[in-house]
Write a protein that binds this DNA or RNA. Structure first.
Length: 525
RNA sequence: GGCCGGAUACCCAAGUGGCCUAAGGGGACGGAUUGCAAAUCCGUUAUUCGCGGGUUCAAAUCCCGCUCCGGCCUCCA
C-alpha cells in the first residue's frame, strides 16, 4: 500500500514495522461536549476506511481511537488554558435544553456534572459511530481499552509530565504552570512546516503578550495547569489541576499501543499544534526517535459548496441526517468517497446518489445469494472477512477456470485502495463488475462482493434507522391498506381515474405506491 | 503577511507526459416494460480538462504568470 505521509510530505510505501505483530494505529477521536457533526465524522470514517483497506490487503490492525472527555478551554489559544471549560459550556446548554423541553424523553442528566455530560455525549457518539460502521466502535464493546478516555489515564499523563521535567524538556514557570520547552526538541515544527521563528511572529493573532511573558519561548505549550477551582481536576506534583490538551494522546497512544506506533490519523487542523506537540512530548518523554511511522490527515468537509456553519444552516450532525431518513450507509459513502486529501463537498444530491449506488450493489448481492441459497445483507462489521471465507468455501473450487466478474474485480479494487486509498477508483472496479454479465461460481462471486463490501462497509447499513422509520402504527397502516384495497379494486375494474385519485391521496399522506407483480407495496417518502 | 492544497461535463468524481477523441456513479434525454407511474433493463450525454503563456515529436498531466476556492499559522475533524 502507498500512503501520503504528512511528516515526509511524500507518498511512501507502507511497510509493516520490523517489530512484527499488528499494525498499530491511533486515531484522534471526538471531544464529547456536543454531538459529532459530519465534518468530525469525515476524519473518523477516513481512519476507518484506511483500517479496512489495510485489512483488505492482508494486514492485521489494532486500531485505537480516543474519546476525549475532559473539556479543555474555550480559549486554548492562550496556551496556558484560559477561558471557560467546554464541559461547563455544554452543561449550560443542557440546562437550557432541559428547561425548554428540548432534551430527548427519558434523559436524566445533571448539567453541573461534567462527567455526566461527557457520558451523555459519548454514548450518543458511540451510537452514531456504530451506525456508520466505525469498526473500532463495535470492537470497543468487547474491549473498551480500544477507545480510551483521558479521565481514566490521568496517572499516565502525570507520569509523562514528570519524565519530561526530569529530562529537561519541561519546566515550571513563574505562574506555576508546567510548560513544554519547544527549543529542547530540534524537530519541533517538522510535521507542520512551522518554524519557531514563524511561530514567534504569532500572525494568527491569538497570542497575547500577557500570557507569553512567563514562558521561555512563545511556542512553549502547557502540560499541566494547577487550578484548584477548575470544573475537572486531579492531584499532581504541581498542584491540583488539569492536563494540557495535547498530553492525552501521547499518554494514551503509549498506554494502549506502545511508545512507537505505525499510523496516526486526524483532521488536517490537528497537524498543528496538536500532533506537532504530541510528537515532541512522546519523543522527548519516551526517548524514541519516532513517535508514529506514518501520519495520515484528512482534509475538511464543506457542505453544498460552502463552509459548514450553524449560521448558514448547513451544519449537520450524523443524527440530524439519520432522523431525516438518510441511511447510515449512504451517509458513510457520501462522506468517504472523495479522496481524503481533497476537500469534500457534501450535498444532499450526493447522499441520494450514494443510496442508489449502494442499492445496486445490494441487488447484485441478493441475486447471487438467491442462487447460492443463503440469506445475505452485506458484510458484517466484525465478521466480514470470515463471512466471505465461509461463502468462498461453499463455492465450487473445480469451477476455477470460469472466474466471474466480482472475483475478477478484486485485484483492481485492491490496487485502487492500495493507491493511497483511491476509493472512487475502487468503486468503479466494483461497478464494472456489477454491470457485467453474471458468471462464475455464485458462492465465490458473493464471497468476492462481500470482501469488497467489508472494505467499504456500506451495504449492511443501507436502510434508514428504526428511529427514522415510517409511521407504521396499526391505525395508519390499516388506513393505507384500506385505500390500497380500494385502489386494487378500481384497477381490476379498469377505473384508472379512481385508481390514480387514490394514489394521489396516499401521496398526500406521504405514502408512495409501487405496483409489482405481487400487487402494490408502499413506503414513506 | 507567511506556508500548504485544489480548480475535470448539469452534479459528485477518477485520471499526474503517449493506451485520454478523459473511468465510474447520479441526473437529463431516448427506447424496452407498465393502464399511467414507480422500480428495473438498454442506449445517448466532455475532440475537452479555471484563464493566459511556455517546454516537448507528444500535456488534463511538466514549467511560469493570473483568477477563484479551501486549509493552517496555538478553538476546530
Amino acid at each position: 500500500m502507498h500512503l501520503h505521509d504528512t511528516l515526509s510530505r511524500s507518498m511512501r510505501a507502507f511497510e509493516p514495522s520490523p517489530r512484527g505483530g499488528p499494525v498499530l494505529f491511533y486515531s484522534c477521536g471526538p471531544t464529547v461536549y456536543d454531538d459529532a457533526h459530519i465534518g468530525n465524522f469525515r476524519s473518523f470514517l477516513n481512519a476507518d476506511m484506511l483500517r479496512r483497506a489495510l485489512e483488505f490487503l492482508g494486514h492485521r490492525v489494532r486500531h485505537v481511537m480516543n474519546i476525549t472527555d475532559v473539556g479543555h478551554m474555550t480559549e486554548d489559544d492562550n496556551a496556558d488554558g484560559g477561558g471557560e471549560d467546554k464541559m461547563a459550556v455544554a452543561g449550560r446548554r443542557i440546562a437550557e435544553a432541559k428547561k425548554s423541553g428540548a432534551l430527548p424523553a427519558g434523559t436524566e442528566i445533571d448539567p453541573s456534572d461534567p462527567y455526566a455530560i461527557a457520558d451523555f455525549y459519548s454514548g450518543r457518539f458511540l451510537e452514531d459511530a456504530r451506525a456508520l460502521g466505525l469498526k473500532v466502535a463495535h470492537e470497543a464493546q468487547a474491549d473498551p481499552t480500544l477507545m480510551p478516555r483521558p479521565t481514566h489515564c490521568v496517572p499516565q499523563m502525570v507520569a509523562l509530565v514528570s519524565r519530561l521535567v526530569d529530562r529537561g524538556h519541561a519546566y515550571v514557570a513563574a505562574d506555576g504552570v508546567v510548560y513544554f520547552d519547544v527549543r529542547s526538541f530540534d524537530r519541533y515544527g517538522d510535521l507542520s512546516g512551522n518554524t519557531l521563528e514563524a511561530l514567534r511572529e504569532g500572525e494568527g493573532g491569538r497570542i497575547s503578550a500577557a500570557h507569553q511573558s512567563v514562558k521561555r519561548h512563545p511556542a512553549d505549550f502547557m502540560l499541566w495547569k494547577p487550578d484548584p477551582k477548575h470544573i475537572m481536576r486531579w492531584d499532581s506534583p504541581w498542584g491540583e489541576g488539569y492536563p494540557g490538551w495535547h498530553l492525552e494522546c501521547s499518554a494514551m497512544a503509549a498506554m494502549t499501543l506502545g511508545e512507537e506506533i505505525d499510523l496516526h490519523s486526524g483532521g488536517e487542523d490537528n497537524i498543528f499544534p496538536h500532533h506537532e506537540c504530541e510528537i515532541a512530548q512522546s519523543c522527548c518523554g519516551f526517548g524514541q526517535p519516532t513517535f508514529s511511522r506514518y501520519w495520515f490527515h484528512t482534509r475538511h468537509l464543506i457542505v453544498e459548496g460552502q463552509k459548514m456553519s450553524k449560521s448558514k444552516g448547513n451544519f449537520f450532525t450524523a443524527r440530524d441526517l439519520f432522523a431525516r431518513g438518510i441511511s447510515p450507509g449512504a451517509l458513510r459513502l457520501e462522506i468517504v468517497r472523495t479522496h481524503y486529501r481533497l476537500n469534500a463537498n457534501f450535498t444532499m444530491q450526493g447522499v441520494q446518489d450514494c443510496q442508489r449506488q449502494i442499492d445496486r450493489w445490494k441487488r447484485a448481492g441478493e441475486a447471487l445469494a438467491a442462487r447460492v441459497g443463503v440469506s445475505w445483507t452485506g458484510a458484517d462489521d466484525l465478521g466480514g472477512a470470515k463471512d466471505a471465507a465461509a461463502l468462498a468455501a461453499r463455492g465450487d473450487a473445480t469451477a476455477a477456470a470460469t472466474t466471474g466478474p466480482f472475483e475478477s474485480a478484486l485485484a483492481a479494487f485492491g490496487d485502487a485502495l492500495a493507491d493511497d486509498l483511491n476509493i472512487s477508483k475502487a468503486m468503479a472496479a466494483l461497478n464494472i463488475a456489477a454491470a457485467a454479465e453474471p458468471g462464475g461460481d455464485p458462492a465465490r462471486e458473493l464471497a468476492a462482493l462481500t470482501r469488497m463490501d467489508a472494505a467499504l462497509g456500506v451495504i449492511s447499513r443501507s436502510t434508514p434507522l428504526a428511529s427514522a422509520a415510517p409511521r407504521t402504527d396499526g391505525e395508519f397502516a390499516a388506513r393505507v391498506d384500506g385505500l390500497l384495497k380500494d385502489r386494487a379494486a378500481a384497477r381490476a375494474a379498469k377505473d384508472f381515474a379512481a385508481s390514480d385519485r387514490i394514489r394521489d391521496e396516499l401521496k398526500s399522506m406521504g405514502v408512495v405506491v409501487k405496483d409489482g407483480p405481487q400487487g402494490a407495496t408502499w413506503s414513506r417518502v
